[in-house]
């Protein structure tokens, strides 16, 4: 095997992993604390990507665009929580699924009305483009390294907040026992809004980071959202640690599968069989992984509920 290729794909896997983590971290808390199935989380990812791309084109300053994009997504998220989602907390999961499914349609169409259906061309400033010479023979895009760096920094910050601060204590308590937190006299509505807002901002961050790599278009949130679900199922609902582990596992497995499954299969099967089975299996890999995890640990790798 080519070690350079393996190193490069490992970095790609890590980059996908931290991206999934940014989305999963907020969503798993919304699941765990509010017990809300929020399909519209992917829409916030889309909003973050669109707003930042647009602000960058309008202002010419990338940093300003990032700040405005994050603030905008946060605002959209909080308004959505106040207007629509808040009334859903007391409803059953079926209502939540359908209402947030409706929200997805609304968000996608509003975006299409404003910016059209064609993919938007999203750029990065010069100082983030180009490659870095990591070793003699490994050159890697700077921007992807930045994504990895930002993702890991957010992970550390979240870990610190959740495990070392008062609000983090409430979040942990909320994820394992909601009634208890309410009984402590905490303003639960405010806690919900804060958690939802943070989740929205993280989704927006993931969206704006991914813009220059993937396509910025209506519906971009849903494809990654389902992968995020797999991350959360594997990691365990309500657990930041689980979201991090699940995201890295899914990112790695998916990237490695797509890169190496076909050539590996070609060594055992006929080339044509590998040509067919390779991509098919690679696209199914993370779901099969999820099935395997569930078969042995129905609550995920890091269950936070009940105990």
């Amino acid at each position: 095997m080519n070690y350079i290729l393996i190193a490069e794909q490992t970095l790609n896997g890590l980059q996908l992993g931290v991206m999934l983590f940014l989305l999963a971290a907020g969503l798993t808390l919304v699941f765990g604390i509010m017990n809300l199935v929020n399909l519209a989380h992917g829409a916030l990812y889309m909003v973050g990507a669109y707003l930042t791309t647009w602000f960058y084109q309008a202002t010419g300053s990338y940093l300003l665009a990032v700040v405005l994009g994050l603030a905008g997504t946060l605002a959209v998220g909080i308004v959505t929580e106040l207007v629509a989602l808040r009334t859903l907390y007391e409803r059953d999961h079926l209502d939540q699924v359908l209402a947030t499914f409706g929200l997805i349609l609304i968000f996608n169409e509003l975006i299409a009305i404003v910016w059209g259906r064609a993919a938007l061309y999203s750029t990065i400033p010069d100082y983030l483009s180009g490659h870095v010479q990591l070793t003699d023979s490994l050159r890697y895009p700077l921007y992807r390294l930045v994504i990895i760096g930002v993702g890991l920094a957010v992970a550390v910050l979240l870990w610190f907040t959740v495990s070392r601060t008062r609000i983090g204590m409430l979040i942990r308590a909320g994820a394992s026992n909601r009634a208890m937190v309410a009984a402590l006299g905490v303003n639960i509505r405010l806690l919900y809004t804060i958690v939802f807002g943070v989740g929205a901002a993280l989704a927006g961050l993931a969206g704006l980071l991914s813009g220059p790599i993937y396509a910025v278009q209506p519906g971009m949130g849903e494809l990654i959202l389902i992968q995020v679900f797999v991350v959360i199922v594997i990691g365990g609902i309500g657990s930041i640690r689980g979201a991090f582990a699940g995201a890295l596992i899914v990112g790695m497995v998916d990237t490695m599968g797509r890169a190496f499954l076909k050539p590996t299969l070609a060594t055992v099967l006929s080339p044509t069989a590998a040509e067919t089975a390779g991509p098919a299996l690679a696209s199914m890999l993370i779901y099969l992984l999820m099935a395997a995890v569930l078969a042995f640990r129905p609550e995920g790798l890091f269950p936070s509920r009940g105990s």
Binding site: N35, P279, L288
Partner: peptide, 25 residues
């Protein structure tokens, strides 16, 4: 065997798996 949010996400994920299978063949 699961219920609640898990059941919703798992049934969705497996269907997505079949969708990608259809795309890749």
């Amino acid at each position: 065997r699961t219920s609640g949010i898990y059941f919703i996400m798992i049934t969705l994920a497996f269907t997505q798996m079949l969708y990608y299978l259809g795309i890749s063949i």
